[in-house]
Design a protein around this nucleic acid. Structure first.
Length: 295
RNA sequence: GGGAAAGUCGCAUAGUGGCAAUUGCAACAGACUGUAAAUCUGUCCUCUUCGGAGUUCGGUGGUUCGAGUCCACCCUUUCCCA
């Protein structure tokens, strides 16, 4: 039976180097589960593994798509699964490493099949949202899909709009597609969560942000400024620098904001992973982890 | 030395006689089925059997039924003139 080793955890916890070590021990390859490292235009700011690291172990789904692309979890699930299947042809074990909880969840539990939606519909909804506000969309959802309306987070305009776009696209309620069916996978899954004491994680985040700046994150962001309104560029480490370019922040303020927002992101990741079923926590703040033991 | 302004719950900010006190940030907890490094929710003086109870607005006194708000003095800070 094939086994997929999943390495999850908050940003700056040390997933990358651990995954590489593990993959080397298992003599296998790594599939990324990172919603931002997948873009080829983003490098420094998303802490993509270095060329050296990438050469140590073969990586997949890193720098493979353009930020212009409309990427999403469903695409990720399909693509990653395909890669995983083909890699299992020649390997007994594989490593999946990343911090995007939803992406990992799509691999582990699957995600219900939903019809594609025209970009036009989303644009229309966005416009309606800006012109008429959330309450209007809430009313619309209540009418189109009372089931989802009663159970969804109605305050979250993203949730409301996503449901509506499916309703409009298909003429059926969004909830009718939400089967919450657990996917069958033909391989074993072992999930490990990397954990660090908060104080240490904060330190690591701060140092990493400073290092990114030294490595030219400002220049990278400048290059991507033209894409600043794309969803993919709505990313910590970029949006703050865009504000600096717009003279809304000083450079020091932008850097400070990046550090704060990265901490908050890490916290959200922990909230997500804490509820992940079957996760084995490895506390890197408390001594060394013996890889042999977890294999 | 003289004059002016200001001190509010971690930081910033509102409040000019009825206030446990506005808003933003941070922090903490949480949600998450196609934007997910996104987006959203709750808590945030203390205690609480969640009904309340007890302490607050630089300090000390005072006026008032009632003071963050008015008065006096003191302390501290900033600015201007020396």
């Amino acid at each position: 039976m094939k086994t997929l080793y999943i390495i999850a955890g908050p940003t700056a916890s040390g997933k990358t180097s651990f995954a590489i070590e593990l993959a080397q021990k298992l003599n296998t390859e790594i599939v990324s589960a990172d919603s931002r490292q997948i873009f080829k235009e983003m490098n420094i700011g998303v802490a993509r593994p270095t060329p050296e690291e990438l050469s140590m172990v073969k990586h997949h789904l890193i720098a493979t798509w353009s930020v212009l692309e409309d990427y999403n979890v469903a695409r990720y699930e399909k693509e990653a699964l395909q890669i995983i299947d083909s890699l299992f042809q020649k390997h007994d074990n594989l490593v999946l490493c990343g911090g995007s909880g939803m992406y990992i969840n799509a691999i582990v539990n699957g995600i219900d099949e939903m019809p594609d939606c025209d970009a036009e519909i989303r644009k229309e909804l966005q416009k309606t949202f800006e012109e008429k506000g959330l309450p209007y969309l809430q009313d619309l959802l209540k009418e189109k899909d009372p089931v989802y309306f009663s159970e969804a987070d109605i305050q979250n305009h993203r949730r409301v709009m996503r449901a509506l776009e499916v309703c409009f696209q298909t003429g059926k309620p969004f909830s009718s597609f939400r089967l919450d069916k657990k996917a069958e996978r033909n391989f074993n899954i072992k999930i490990f969560g990397i954990e660090r004491e908060r104080e240490e994680l904060v330190e690591r985040i701060d140092t990493r942000v400073d290092l990114m700046m030294q490595m030219g994150q400002k220049e990278e962001a400048r290059e991507l400024y033209k894409y600043k309104d794309l969803p993919s560029l709505s990313t910590v480490g970029y949006r703050e620098l865009f504000e600096y370019f717009d003279n809304r922040l000083t450079l020091d303020q932008a850097i400070e904001q990046i550090k704060i927002h990265t901490r908050q992101y890490a916290k959200r990741q922990m909230t997500w992973f804490r509820k992940t079923e079957g996760i084995n926590w490895l506390n890197f703040s408390k001594g060394n982890i013996n890889i042999e033991e977890i294999i």
